[in-house]
Design a protein around this nucleic acid. Sequence first.
DNA 1: CTCGATCCCTGGACGC
DNA 2: TGCGTCCAGGGATCGA
Length: 299
Amino acid sequence: MPELPEVETVARGLQKSVAGRRILSVRMGKTDFIDDPAALEQQLPGRQIENVERYGKFMLLRLSARTDTAADSENGEVGAASLLVHLGMTGQLAPYAAAQPYAKHTHVWLALDDGRELRYTDPRRFGRIAYLSGALLAEELTAFGADPLLVSTEEFASRIRSRNAQIKALLLDQSVLRGVGNIYADESLWRARIHPMRRGTELSTKQAQVLRRVLQDVLRKAILARGSSISDFLDAEGQPGEYQRHHRAYGREGKRCYRCGAAIRRVIVAGRSSYFCPKCQPAPRLPKQRKRRGPARNG
DNA sequence: CTCGATCCCTGGACGC
DNA sequence: TGCGTCCAGGGATCGA
C-alpha cells in the first residue's frame, strides 16, 4: 500500500528511467479512475516527461510544453503541464519493453520515444490519474497539508495540538500532513508511545515533538529500505521494498511488543485497523463517550 | 467547521 | 474443488 516512502521510491525510480523521454501516444483500458481520459489522449502525445516528483502520496510527472503545431490550433493548450498519479492501494507505474506482455488490470499505456511503454496497472482502481495544466495543478495542491519530512517542530505541533480528532485520524488526514498512511501512522505512534485514540488536543508539546521526530525517522528509514511491501507493492523496477521487516506494530496483532513483551492489539480507529501496544501506549481515560445508564440528566 | 460512517473495488484468506 | 463471506484501505461524499 503506497504511502510516502513507497511513492518516493517509485518517483525516484521513474526519475531515473523515464525522465527526458517523450510520450508518443496513449492507450487506455478502464478509465473510471481517470479525471478526464480525453484530456490524456489529446494532451500527452508530443510532450516530454521533464521530471518526476513526489507530492504527498501523489507522483507528479512534469511535462514539457507541446511543440506540435497541429494540435495547437485545435486545443489551444500547449503550455507546461503535469500528470498527477495516485497509486491508491494497488497501483503500479513502471516502464516495460513494448513487446513485453502486459499484466492483467493494466489500464494505461504511454508509448515512449525509446520503444518502451510506461504502464499503469491497478487491480482495485483506487488510484487516480489526472492531466492538469499549470493553474489547475496549483489549485489542486493547495488542499494538502505539510510534508512530514519538511514540517518544522512548531508547525507540526500547532497542526496536531489544535485539533480534537483522534491522533491516528489526524496523521491520516492529508490536509494536515501529506503522505502518511496507515502503516507509518501506527509505526510512529508505537515509537512515540502514543495511543492511536488520543486526541490531538491531549498531546503535550513534548509529545508532539517526539511524534514528529520518530515519524521523520521512520519515513527516512523506510525510504532507504525502498518502502514496505505487504502484499503487492513493487517499485518502478519491479522490486519489493524491505521496510516491512522493521515494522514494530503494523500487522502484529497478538505478537509480543518488541519493547515490553505485551501482546500487540488491534482496534478500529478512523475506520482503519490500528495496531498498538496496550502497555507502552496507554489508552486515554475515556476512549469513547460511554452510554449513560438511564435518561440523560439536565444541568 | 468538525468528525465519523459508508462506499468504491478486487484478490486473497478462510470456512464449510 | 468450489462457493460464499470477510477483510484490506485512501479518499470522496454525506450527514449529524
